[in-house]
Design a protein around this nucleic acid. Structure first.
Lengths: 202, 202
DNA sequence: ATATTTTAATAGGGGTCACTATTTTAATGA
DNA sequence: TCATTAAAATAGTGACCCCTATTAAAATAT
């Protein structure tokens, strides 16, 4: 049989492109070049495979952007690069458009409620990571003490989800980054330019 | 047979809750209390029914928020109320969470590509409506002349899509509106408060 | 080389998918 | 009242769903 990680990579791409409900086990076994019993002995079930494919994909897609977020860069600069990296991830040539997690399994059949909980939990965890970074910025004095870090994290979470949706609809990389630039003008205490290509800080 | 609009309302709710791929024709006929041949003679096909259910739902959900957007209110105030109305629509008691259009059919099986194009076109049209309103605001002098209205529309489009995703994941009404308040601080020329509950203008 | 274990492939089970041909019921016409 | 039209229900189409029991092939061990 094929290497386990190779199989997970193939599965992740299929799920990423077609979603959980839009991907059949026949699609998966055919793409992996294996027979159905091998899929079930190796990965357990379709839902288990999805779970593992999500973990696999996150482990590979999130490492760089996590380093950026947790680096010693000023928080606003780290956030910009973090969001840019996500925009790049949404528009990688040769890979499905959008994010595998951000806009996955939002509407679903009742029988797939447990699968929807998986992706919802991953989205929540992602926003909690952002909030934790913002909390640290408050402690550092990089953000005002009274900042509502939870809402701020959910705001940028919404931007991430919106970018994924628009990437699925065909939006290109630079279009997403222009959108990020506007989102960053909502940063607490930031002085505004008029809009669009704002490259000056403060 | 039942009234056509009653049927469309039932179908819209099912598609809204479960998505296109997560809703079966058996679900639809059972919920409408009709037999399969009646569904096909009345609506044509599952895809045609989805199309009609989308139109029906949009006609009922969008009328108020369109009036708000096209009213003689100052553009920033109109936008706030417009977004608030969408947040209300995402969290109506007794209705499915999120928006039926904003986050629909993003990932899908190949065989449903034509359905994905329908919702993508509706999302694009929605953002073009926003852009047209912003363009008018530029002409009125309510927005700076050099405003990138296209990106600004896609930015608030992303907010709308993010709100829908978070509503699907369980976010409540006030949480979405806090998020909107932050998004509105990204308005061109707006002076910032620190974050969160910003109620003062200019 | 033969027996045993492990791996892979075939074949199929029970169910549901979107969709219809056919039959039955109900309403209308003379 | 009986023939004709229109509506609705049944029953079933082939295809696909997720998953597995069974068989065939390959690898290992004796």
């Amino acid at each position: 049989m094929l290497d386990r990680d190779v199989g997970l990579d193939i599965a992740a791409r299929l799920f990423w492109e077609r979603g959980y409900e839009g991907t059949s086990t026949a699609d998966l076994t055919k793409a992996m070049g294996i027979n159905p019993p091998t899929l079930y002995s190796t990965f357990g079930s379709k839902e288990e495979l999805y779970r593992q494919a999500l973990d696999f994909s996150i482990a590979h897609e999130n490492s760089r952007r996590m380093e950026i977020l947790q680096s010693r860069l000023p928080i606003d600069e780290a956030l910009r690069l973090y969001l840019y990296d996500i925009a790049d991830g949404d528009t990688q040539p040769g890979k499905p458009r959008g994010c595998m997690v951000s806009t996955a399994v939002l509407q679903h059949a009742e029988e797939n409620a447990s699968v929807a909980r998986i992706t919802a939990a991953l989205r929540e965890a992602s926003m909690q990571t952002l909030k934790a970074r913002f909390d640290r910025a408050v402690e550092n004095g990089e953000l005002p003490a009274q900042t509502d870090t939870d809402t701020l994290a959910r705001f940028y979470g919404a931007i991430i989800q919106g970018m994924s949706a628009q990437a699925c609809d065909g939006a290109c990389n630079v279009r997403l980054k222009r959108l990020i630039d506007i989102a960053l003008t909502a940063w607490p205490g930031k002085r505004q330019t008029s809009s669009g290509n704002s490259d000056e800080d403060t």
